[in-house]
Simulated scan of single mutants.
Amino acid sequence: MGTHVDIDPAILYFGTPVVVLSTLNEDGSTNLMPMSSVFWLGRTAVLGMGASSQTARNLRERPEIVLNLPSVDLVTQVDRLALTTGNAAMSAAKAERGYVHVADKYAHAGLTAYGSDTVLPTSVAECPVHIEGTISAIHELGEPKLLAVEVAVTAVRVMPRTPRGSSQPDRSGSVAAAGDELPAVLRAGGAGPPVAVGEHRRGALPLTGAGSIHPGGGMWVGST
Protein backbone atom coordinates (compact mmCIF):
# COMPACT_ATOMS: atom_id res chain seq x y z
CA MET A 1 0.00 0.00 0.00
CA GLY A 2 1.36 3.37 -0.98
CA THR A 3 2.17 6.02 1.63
CA HIS A 4 1.97 9.01 -0.71
CA VAL A 5 -0.68 10.48 -2.98
CA ASP A 6 -0.43 12.62 -6.11
CA ILE A 7 -1.35 16.31 -5.80
CA ASP A 8 -1.49 19.25 -8.19
CA PRO A 9 -0.60 22.35 -6.13
CA ALA A 10 -1.25 25.83 -7.49
CA ILE A 11 2.39 26.70 -6.78
CA LEU A 12 5.52 24.69 -6.07
CA TYR A 13 6.70 26.41 -2.94
CA PHE A 14 7.89 25.06 0.41
CA GLY A 15 8.93 28.16 2.34
CA THR A 16 11.80 30.64 2.22
CA PRO A 17 12.54 33.81 4.25
CA VAL A 18 10.88 37.09 3.38
CA VAL A 19 13.29 39.73 2.12
CA VAL A 20 12.76 43.40 1.29
CA LEU A 21 14.39 44.33 -2.01
CA SER A 22 15.89 47.79 -2.53
CA THR A 23 16.20 48.94 -6.15
CA LEU A 24 16.89 52.31 -7.75
CA ASN A 25 14.07 54.28 -9.36
CA GLU A 26 14.63 56.50 -12.41
CA ASP A 27 14.61 59.64 -10.21
CA GLY A 28 17.33 58.27 -7.93
CA SER A 29 15.02 57.29 -5.06
CA THR A 30 14.90 53.73 -3.71
CA ASN A 31 11.93 51.44 -4.21
CA LEU A 32 11.20 48.76 -1.60
CA MET A 33 9.48 45.47 -2.41
CA PRO A 34 8.86 42.57 0.00
CA MET A 35 9.03 39.09 -1.48
CA SER A 36 9.73 35.49 -0.46
CA SER A 37 10.73 33.79 -3.71
CA VAL A 38 14.45 33.74 -2.98
CA PHE A 39 17.25 31.27 -2.42
CA TRP A 40 21.04 31.29 -2.40
CA LEU A 41 23.66 29.26 -4.28
CA GLY A 42 27.12 30.10 -3.00
CA ARG A 43 27.62 33.84 -3.60
CA THR A 44 24.60 34.07 -5.91
CA ALA A 45 21.03 34.91 -4.88
CA VAL A 46 18.16 33.84 -7.14
CA LEU A 47 14.94 35.88 -7.03
CA GLY A 48 11.50 35.31 -8.52
CA MET A 49 9.31 38.30 -9.34
CA GLY A 50 6.60 39.62 -11.63
CA ALA A 51 7.96 40.92 -14.94
CA SER A 52 5.76 44.04 -14.83
CA SER A 53 6.76 45.13 -11.32
CA GLN A 54 8.57 48.38 -10.63
CA THR A 55 11.40 46.32 -9.14
CA ALA A 56 11.81 44.32 -12.37
CA ARG A 57 11.83 47.53 -14.41
CA ASN A 58 14.44 49.05 -12.12
CA LEU A 59 16.69 45.98 -12.34
CA ARG A 60 16.56 45.91 -16.13
CA GLU A 61 17.59 49.58 -16.32
CA ARG A 62 19.77 49.91 -13.21
CA PRO A 63 21.05 46.42 -12.28
CA GLU A 64 21.94 46.95 -8.62
CA ILE A 65 20.06 45.69 -5.56
CA VAL A 66 20.05 45.21 -1.80
CA LEU A 67 18.39 42.20 -0.17
CA ASN A 68 17.33 43.35 3.30
CA LEU A 69 16.48 40.50 5.70
CA PRO A 70 13.87 41.72 8.23
CA SER A 71 13.56 40.44 11.78
CA VAL A 72 10.40 39.49 13.65
CA ASP A 73 9.97 42.95 15.11
CA LEU A 74 9.53 44.41 11.60
CA VAL A 75 6.38 42.50 10.64
CA THR A 76 4.20 45.61 10.86
CA GLN A 77 6.54 47.69 8.71
CA VAL A 78 6.88 44.95 6.08
CA ASP A 79 3.12 44.50 5.97
CA ARG A 80 2.67 48.20 5.16
CA LEU A 81 4.54 47.55 1.90
CA ALA A 82 2.35 44.60 0.89
CA LEU A 83 -0.18 46.31 -1.40
CA THR A 84 1.91 49.24 -2.58
CA THR A 85 3.60 49.82 -5.92
CA GLY A 86 6.31 52.23 -6.98
CA ASN A 87 4.83 52.41 -10.48
CA ALA A 88 2.60 55.46 -10.90
CA ALA A 89 1.14 53.95 -14.08
CA MET A 90 -0.49 51.13 -12.19
CA SER A 91 -2.48 48.54 -14.12
CA ALA A 92 -6.25 48.23 -13.70
CA ALA A 93 -5.76 44.68 -12.42
CA LYS A 94 -3.54 45.89 -9.59
CA ALA A 95 -5.92 48.70 -8.72
CA GLU A 96 -8.77 46.19 -8.49
CA ARG A 97 -6.69 44.10 -6.06
CA GLY A 98 -6.27 47.10 -3.76
CA TYR A 99 -2.80 48.30 -4.69
CA VAL A 100 -1.92 51.97 -4.19
CA HIS A 101 0.95 53.96 -5.64
CA VAL A 102 3.51 55.01 -3.03
CA ALA A 103 6.51 57.06 -4.10
CA ASP A 104 8.30 57.08 -0.72
CA LYS A 105 8.18 53.50 0.53
CA TYR A 106 10.46 54.25 3.50
CA ALA A 107 8.13 56.90 4.92
CA HIS A 108 5.04 54.80 4.18
CA ALA A 109 6.42 51.77 6.05
CA GLY A 110 8.10 53.68 8.86
CA LEU A 111 11.59 52.54 7.86
CA THR A 112 14.91 54.37 7.55
CA ALA A 113 17.26 54.55 4.56
CA TYR A 114 20.87 53.58 5.20
CA GLY A 115 23.73 54.15 2.77
CA SER A 116 24.99 51.04 0.96
CA ASP A 117 28.66 50.25 0.40
CA THR A 118 28.88 48.85 -3.14
CA VAL A 119 25.58 49.74 -4.85
CA LEU A 120 23.41 52.84 -5.27
CA PRO A 121 20.07 51.64 -3.81
CA THR A 122 19.89 52.36 -0.09
CA SER A 123 19.56 49.65 2.55
CA VAL A 124 16.88 49.40 5.24
CA ALA A 125 18.59 50.47 8.46
CA GLU A 126 16.25 48.47 10.70
CA CYS A 127 16.97 45.15 8.95
CA PRO A 128 19.74 43.17 10.69
CA VAL A 129 21.19 41.78 7.42
CA HIS A 130 21.95 43.68 4.19
CA ILE A 131 23.09 41.73 1.11
CA GLU A 132 24.25 43.98 -1.71
CA GLY A 133 24.66 42.80 -5.27
CA THR A 134 24.56 43.36 -9.01
CA ILE A 135 22.35 41.59 -11.53
CA SER A 136 24.23 38.91 -13.45
CA ALA A 137 21.30 37.42 -15.42
CA ILE A 138 17.54 37.80 -15.92
CA HIS A 139 15.51 34.85 -17.23
CA GLU A 140 11.95 35.13 -18.56
CA LEU A 141 9.76 32.25 -17.39
CA GLY A 142 6.76 32.73 -19.70
CA GLU A 143 3.12 32.78 -18.56
CA PRO A 144 2.27 34.14 -16.13
CA LYS A 145 4.89 36.80 -16.79
CA LEU A 146 7.57 35.97 -14.25
CA LEU A 147 11.31 36.54 -14.02
CA ALA A 148 14.12 34.59 -12.38
CA VAL A 149 16.84 37.06 -11.47
CA GLU A 150 20.41 36.10 -10.57
CA VAL A 151 22.23 38.42 -8.17
CA ALA A 152 26.01 38.36 -7.73
CA VAL A 153 26.63 39.29 -4.09
CA THR A 154 29.10 42.15 -3.68
CA ALA A 155 28.86 42.84 0.07
CA VAL A 156 27.19 41.52 3.21
CA ARG A 157 26.55 43.69 6.27
CA VAL A 158 25.08 42.54 9.58
CA MET A 159 24.28 43.96 13.01
CA PRO A 160 27.05 42.57 15.27
CA ARG A 161 24.85 41.73 18.26
CA THR A 162 26.15 38.27 19.10
CA PRO A 163 29.61 36.67 19.43
CA ARG A 164 31.32 35.55 16.23
CA GLY A 165 30.04 32.17 15.07
CA SER A 166 26.56 32.56 16.55
CA SER A 167 23.36 33.10 14.62
CA GLN A 168 21.00 33.05 17.59
CA PRO A 169 18.60 35.97 18.10
CA ASP A 170 19.04 38.44 20.88
CA ARG A 171 16.19 39.11 23.31
CA SER A 172 14.45 41.40 20.84
CA GLY A 173 14.10 38.50 18.39
CA SER A 174 16.41 39.99 15.76
CA VAL A 175 18.58 37.83 13.56
CA ALA A 176 22.17 38.58 14.53
CA ALA A 177 25.50 37.34 13.22
CA ALA A 178 29.02 38.53 12.74
CA GLY A 179 31.70 38.32 10.09
CA ASP A 180 31.23 35.43 7.65
CA GLU A 181 28.25 33.79 9.40
CA LEU A 182 25.67 34.65 6.74
CA PRO A 183 24.92 30.99 5.86
CA ALA A 184 24.01 30.30 9.48
CA VAL A 185 21.67 33.27 9.50
CA LEU A 186 19.92 32.06 6.36
CA ARG A 187 19.57 28.52 7.72
CA ALA A 188 18.19 29.63 11.08
CA GLY A 189 14.49 28.89 11.32
CA GLY A 190 11.65 27.00 12.93
CA ALA A 191 7.91 27.32 13.07
CA GLY A 192 6.38 30.34 14.77
CA PRO A 193 2.97 31.86 15.36
CA PRO A 194 0.98 32.87 12.25
CA VAL A 195 0.58 36.59 11.62
CA ALA A 196 -1.87 37.75 8.95
CA VAL A 197 -0.31 40.14 6.46
CA GLY A 198 -1.27 41.28 3.00
CA GLU A 199 -4.02 40.07 0.68
CA HIS A 200 -1.86 38.65 -2.06
CA ARG A 201 0.13 35.99 -0.21
CA ARG A 202 -2.70 33.43 -0.01
CA GLY A 203 -2.04 32.71 3.65
CA ALA A 204 -0.57 33.91 6.91
CA LEU A 205 3.01 34.92 7.51
CA PRO A 206 4.55 32.82 10.30
CA LEU A 207 7.68 34.03 12.03
CA THR A 208 10.65 31.80 12.66
CA GLY A 209 11.96 31.38 16.14
CA ALA A 210 15.36 32.54 14.93
CA GLY A 211 14.03 35.94 14.09
CA SER A 212 13.53 35.99 10.33
CA ILE A 213 10.12 36.38 8.69
CA HIS A 214 8.80 33.40 6.72
CA PRO A 215 5.59 33.34 4.65
CA GLY A 216 3.05 30.57 4.96
CA GLY A 217 0.26 29.28 2.78
CA GLY A 218 1.65 30.59 -0.50
CA MET A 219 4.60 32.13 -2.28
CA TRP A 220 5.09 35.87 -1.99
CA VAL A 221 6.21 36.71 -5.53
CA GLY A 222 7.21 40.33 -5.72
CA SER A 223 4.99 42.54 -7.83
CA THR A 224 5.69 46.04 -6.55
Results as ranks from 00 to 15, higher is better:
L21Q: 08
L21W: 07
L21Y: 06
T23P: 04
T23G: 06
L24I: 03
L24N: 03
L24P: 03
D27R: 05
G28C: 07
G28I: 04
S29H: 11
T30I: 02
T30W: 01
N31F: 07
N31R: 10
N31P: 07
P34M: 01
S36P: 08
S37H: 12
S37A: 10
F39Y: 14
L41H: 09
G42A: 05
G42C: 13
T44V: 13
G48S: 07
G48T: 02
G48R: 02
G48H: 04
A51Q: 02
A51H: 09
S53R: 00
S53L: 04
S53E: 03
Q54N: 01
T55Q: 03
T55H: 04
R57F: 08
R57T: 11
N58K: 04
N58E: 00
N58W: 00
L59C: 03
R60T: 03
R60C: 02
E61G: 06
E64P: 01
V66C: 11
L67R: 01
L69I: 14
L69Q: 01
L69N: 00
L69F: 13
S71A: 13
S71E: 00
V72H: 05
D73M: 02
L74F: 08
L74P: 00
V75K: 00
V75C: 08
V75Y: 13
V78A: 09
D79K: 13
L83S: 12
L83H: 14
T84G: 08
T85P: 12
G86D: 09
N87E: 14
A88I: 14
A92F: 09
A93S: 15
K94H: 13
K94L: 15
E96Y: 11
E96R: 15
V100Y: 11
V100K: 14
V100W: 08
